[in-house]
């Protein structure tokens, strides 16, 4: 649906050139909710704007719905933009106008008749559950309601693709979740492919099926959400995963590890879905000459699957610990040894 191939872009600034994008390639399939995560300045905002040509690349190609964007005339580009909705962090609504007026604008631009506009505005308002706010002024709405209007406006022209620019970053956690659920419905019920950028890993965790991690203008890691959360390869990805999945020994328990004088190792275990069939931890506990202490455990829901994370303190002879670790690996859990500060 969206193919970005080997795209680079440099911005000229008074302080020198800034490499906004560096040989970036991503592929978004029809039906995806594809997330791009990165800290500010990573280039994700520029990348997103390539898709509706608010930015154009210096080199590389961008193909949307089979059309190479650089080959489109200005007029064709305007027509294509009507099939791509966009939602913004700051909503970018006409605050002094009614909800109806805001949602009707893209339809008016496209030359729809009054009857068509009324019908479509009603439909999308029902979808975002704001039917009763039709004639309210946008300035009277809460942040979450404004974003619902923003989404309704983006959906008005029945787009195939929705671009979300930090759509939930200005909202509180509860509202964020309801907006994410709404985006999920947009994807499932309307069949809209969603490409979103965010710096919040929860957003990726809750609704995305694929994720690209960006740093310094490059995509440093890309894959399914379960893969990237399960085994992040780069330091940035690990930092992001850590914001939602705690993989550290809780502060209060570090003393337990530090004061343990016997031979020990601290291991982080991740279980994705039901890939591990045996009662692994129970089996470890039954091992002769091995003491197992659970220092931390969390369960995260993502992508309709579950990822559980355990932090285990294994105490015993080196030989025993190694045997336990082999057992963990054989069972199919993802294991990582944590290095404690005092070591």
């Amino acid at each position: 649906m969206i193919d970005i191939e080997h795209v680079s872009k440099v911005f000229q600034a008074p302080s020198g050139d800034v490499q906004a994008l560096q040989d970036v390639s991503i592929h978004v399939e029809k039906g995806d909710i594809y997330g791009i995560v990165g800290f500010s300045g990573a280039g994700k905002s520029t990348l997103l704007r390539l898709v509706n040509r608010l930015e154009s690349p210096d080199t590389g190609t961008v193909t949307v719905a089979g059309e190479n964007l650089s080959s489109l005339s200005k007029k064709q580009m305007l027509l294509l933009r009507r099939k791509i909705g966009m939602v913004f962090q700051q909503f970018n609504l006409l605050e002094g106008k009614s909800v109806y007026h805001n949602i009707a604008i893209p339809l008016k631009l496209a030359g729809a008749s009054k009857a068509e506009i009324d019908k479509r505005v009603g439909e999308v308002l029902r979808f975002v559950e704001l039917e009763d706010k039709r004639d309210n002024y946008v300035s009277q709405l809460s942040g979450g309601q404004k974003q619902r209007v923003g989404i309704a406006r983006a959906l008005a022209t029945s787009p195939d693709i929705l671009l979300c620019d930090e759509a939930t970053s200005a909202l509180d956690p509860q509202t964020t979740e309801s907006i994410l659920r709404l985006l999920q419905r947009v994807n499932r019920e309307m069949g809209v492919t969603i490409l979103l950028i965010t710096h919040q890993m929860q957003v990726i965790q809750l609704i995305c099926n694929r994720v690209a991690v960006m740093e310094g203008g490059s995509v440093v890691e890309e894959g399914t959400v379960l893969d990237v959360f399960g085994q992040p390869k780069t330091e940035v990805s690990k930092r992001f995963v850590r914001t939602v999945i705690n993989d550290r020994v809780p502060e209060a328990f570090t003393g337990i590890v530090r004061e343990e004088k016997r031979n020990q190792k601290v291991d982080l275990l991740k279980f994705i879905g039901d890939t591990v069939k045996e009662p692994l931890i129970a089996n470890l506990c039954r091992m002769e000459g091995l003491e197992v202490n659970i220092l931390g455990a969390t369960i995260q829901e993502m992508q309709g699957s579950v990822m559980s994370v355990f932090i285990l303190q294994l105490i015993g002879d080196e030989e025993k610990i190694l045997e336990a670790e082999r057992r963990i690996d054989k069972a199919g859990a993802i294991r990582e040894r944590l290095v404690m500060d005092h070591e």
């Binding site: 305007l78 027509l79 970018n92 496209a110 022209t157 671009l163």
Partner: peptide, 9 residues
């Protein structure tokens, strides 16, 4: 920017 994204001339 929102206007541009909507395909406004």
């Amino acid at each position: 920017e929102a206007a541009q994204a909507m395909g406004a001339t």
